[in-house]
Design a protein around this nucleic acid. Sequence first.
DNA 1: CGGACGCTTGATCTTCTTCAATGCAAGTGG
DNA 2: CCACTTGCATTGAAGAAGATCAAGCGTCCG
Lengths: 236, 236
Amino acid sequence: MSISHVLSADDRFSATQATHSGRGWTTTPLSQDRRHQDGFGQSEPTVRFAANNEIYGEGDETQSFYKILSGVVRVCKFLSDGRRQIDAFHMTGDVFGFESGVKHRLSAEAVSDCAVICYRWKGVAALVAEDDRLTRHLFSHAMYCLERAQEHSLLLGCGNATQRLAAFLLEMADRNPRDDIINLTMTRQDIADYLGLTVETVSRTLSQFERDAVIRLRTARCIRLKNRAALRRLIS
Amino acid sequence: MSISHVLSADDRFSATQATHSGRGWTTTPLSQDRRHQDGFGQSEPTVRFAANNEIYGEGDETQSFYKILSGVVRVCKFLSDGRRQIDAFHMTGDVFGFESGVKHRLSAEAVSDCAVICYRWKGVAALVAEDDRLTRHLFSHAMYCLERAQEHSLLLGCGNATQRLAAFLLEMADRNPRDDIINLTMTRQDIADYLGLTVETVSRTLSQFERDAVIRLRTARCIRLKNRAALRRLIS
DNA sequence: CGGACGCTTGATCTTCTTCAATGCAAGTGG
DNA sequence: CCACTTGCATTGAAGAAGATCAAGCGTCCG
């Protein structure tokens, strides 16, 4: 336990604390309702964020990184012309906000109501100096993030709208392999900003998938995969 | 020295070994003409690759990672339909081929004739276990690569052709800040595959930059930046 | 010299974006 | 309970950016 559990995706805290009680969400980082003993020599606060609230902003100091207990988070960058690129979606068990610089290069926002553990730290150097075992964990995590970032580049560089959405659906299905039902927490706009497309194109492409009997749109946010193989064939 | 120099971009070996003597390049990983004492407890071979030769391929075992003494390397992925996405270009001093998995997920090829130091290893775990100081270096390196991968995603997701090329030129200029002259080692096709465009669009956009007096194309591969500010304004 | 290769340029076609309208479900207030 | 608002999603029509197809051009090198 102690340190190593920080980065393991499926520790027991995720399960026990995931249940949140109705309303009562806070709009700014407060409401620490329970503290974890986490091997950092101090207890770590659980913080809740309401949907669409900022967890940290571009330029904020990197005083903490986070682990999701429940909910979905988007990490994104805002451009001067108002557009937005979403770098990644993070779900229960994921660690995010872990950057080596003094300031965050990206923002993080709650897609849905969220509960996260907030790990305070004093920069990579300090952390690494005091604990080699943790270093190794964070290291693996960095390499994992790197792989995912590369895959994302690949998708954006090579794929057309159809391929991007196929890849996106498979990615979401992998995250939550409960039969073939995907519960999208994010809006079409979020998906568009993640895939470098427009809302309209996302919507049209999903509709086309449904006409082709590849998926079933039970509701806009609840999708049933009817033909995974067809999706895989699209990206190949 | 010893370990830390492995990942420092500007160590003295880069300079002394960069001079290669005309022809005589090998087509496969051989020709170790000098060995470095590198703190790994064994000497590290210098290997040379001729332009367009493969350094490692997708699916090859990750037995080594590399540091460039001279030349340019592209790290890329080939798609089933014959297309190619270039993930990154690496130049003198850069480390590449460093992956945590058992097999390489990408290929690496020499863009120009290259000389690289080849560091053999037995996986991240083993390396990390035996040397904490090295771990920290590799860790920083991973975080640096992650940042660059994220920037690349951002570019591919949000930018149009003009913005992608502007960013590319500035990136190249930063790498080799010798006045305002950029010596591109790579072909237009390489650039296109890096930016998710076609050769024609790359060529047209560069021509447009020249018409707008933003750059001067002294030759196809030698570009003079006449108005850096204008390029920066394009990406903003 | 001539062929190969890489680069540029033009004309056309496709795909995605943009603009605009409509639909649809949830929440609110009279 | 029903009108009304509001936010998100879908759909259509028009436009633009980039891809594709097709020549040409320059340069390097045998």
